[in-house]
Amino acid sequence: MPQSMAAFALLTPVVIFFGLSVIYPLFETIRISFWQIRGLGKPTFIGIANYQRLFTDPTFLGTLWTTLIFTIGVTVISVAIGWFLAMLCSFAPKQTSIFRLMIFATFGISEAVAGYIWIGIFRPGESGLLNGVLIALGLGDWSQAWLGSAHSALMALIVAASWSSVGLPLLLSFAAVQTIPRTVLEAAQMDGAKPLAVVWYIMMPLSTAGARVAIFINLLSALRAFDIIFVLTNGGPARATETVGFFMYRESMTQFNLGYGAAATIVLLVAVLVVAIPAIAQRTKGAH
């Protein structure tokens, strides 16, 4: 069998599967976004009216802002902490293996489960873990209903989502640091570089590849976040923590405005592509 035929034969199942599971639903979502569908009622073709409504809907415009804050917050915090921990762990790789494993395990916990864990931490009153600790430390004045105001609820969400996103940057940055030749590090030490200088001038610059991949993945995850928001705040109070992903769910699944929800989905898809395409292009260019 010629090589091209073999390649074709091997690719065909994947292309069919990808077409059925990704391409077809994508085109179907785009098609639905031009229709008004309410519940089980008869659909009506309305052209771009869903998109026009979307960009004049104050609730949706609010979700764009919330999504931006949430996405940047989660990405910056999770990557910064993950990268920093990776540097620390690099000084004693063997001794910190269990520590790394424990942190990376949070990456494997579903967002919904993470949400329930953090509900226990942020519960109002003394029964909430965070409030309980504050009271025990004599900082009772700081205790509050963390999920009860627009500002603190969003911050709480960012903290909770960052917690479950630290593992990946840690792992990728740690792996990148491990690829730095020992000779480079030894030369720096022989030249009298202190640990902080080694981290700042050698380890961090040479491990940016891992951090970049982590930024890319965490950015996309945060953009599409839903589960943890659903469990922790349900988009509240009074929609203050609704992101585009949550808005999409509410419109599509709770209110069953499928067309309107589909339009929001396409807007989210465009946002994801705006982030993903340059990143993929850069990675592809690097590979060449």
Partner: peptide, 12 residues
């Protein structure tokens, strides 16, 4: 207070 109300589901 309203923060506690907003943060409370029926189970809390």
């Amino acid at each position: 207070d309203i923060q506690t109300i907003y943060a409370s589901h029926w189970d809390d």
